[in-house]
Amino acid sequence: MSDSTGEMNATNQQTRVYEDVFEMLPSEENPSPMVRINRLNPAASFSLYAKLEWANPFGSVKDRAAWQMLQDLEGRGEINQDRGIVEPTSGNTGISLAALARARGYRLKAVVPNKVPKEKKLMLKIAGAELEVVSDELCPAPGLGDGSINLAKTYAKAQGDRYAMPNQYENYQNVAAHIQTTGPEIWRQTEGQISHLFVSLGTCGSVTGIAKFLREKKPSVKVIAIQPSEGHDIPGLRNLSQLEASKLFDRSLIDEILEIDFELAYKRALELCQTEGLLAGPSCGLILEGTRHVVERDQGGCGVMVFPDNIFKYTATMLKHLPELEEGTSV
């Protein structure tokens, strides 16, 4: 482990020793893990894997877009010690951006919808973000957009000397991150055998980026997007009717969009925790439910589900949807 000076050797992905947290960020050489789904896979003839994005250093798939957007802003000289970042975020992008920005010496103001769970808001603060909470979804009107997106845009426009806004909903770097990392990782990890990709929709950076890369390699790959039913409360995800906020959504790259009753997201997440040993968050539960329908139908193939984050931030939300969890928690 040590050389003659007593210093550890430089970055070694085999032994997982890194020089700084930035080197831990995922790439083709340092991919997030993929694990086979065994007990919850409805067809033995179908190889089903979950790509665990919570193994990324800041705990979610958003590490990829955040890092790419931050490097892009740095590269263009857009941020410095005086000019920080403002971003509308429902949590995970903010956590990644805040931690990355602070570790690089920049400020981050996160504009957060009020409905986001308190654990996530506190996590943003702990990661180093300044928080601006905005009451969203008053009486939704067509094209009104999110209050948080508009407020972040206002900061970037009115206080341009203090804030740059990466805007994950419109920033192509969000797509590029997945073309450069997630796509090649999956390709290599499945040795090109992937036949089905299962993803959820949020900013749509992951679906657009991964699908672009995989389609280039293998046009027959089926891209299946899973969306929660209307009125859902799964943070970070969007129903098609809410997708107007994202400029990165490219319908032509998606073969099928499945709509799943959002209550099942919580149920399936619990099953993943209790039968596969995967402490997966509600968005993973939603993806699994959609995936199971396709696996049952198609029977054969090699599928990869991109699991965005784990359960730890969602205990309160889980309790809300699965009230039976309350039982036995107090004397």
């Binding site: 601006e132 905005v134 009451s135 008053l138 209050g147 508009n150 407020l151 206002t154 900061y155 426009k157 009115a158 206080q159």
Partner: peptide, 11 residues
């Protein structure tokens, strides 16, 4: 505004 923070953020 409905959102009373908006004016201070920029107008």
């Amino acid at each position: 505004d409905v959102d009373t923070q908006a004016y201070d953020a920029g107008h």
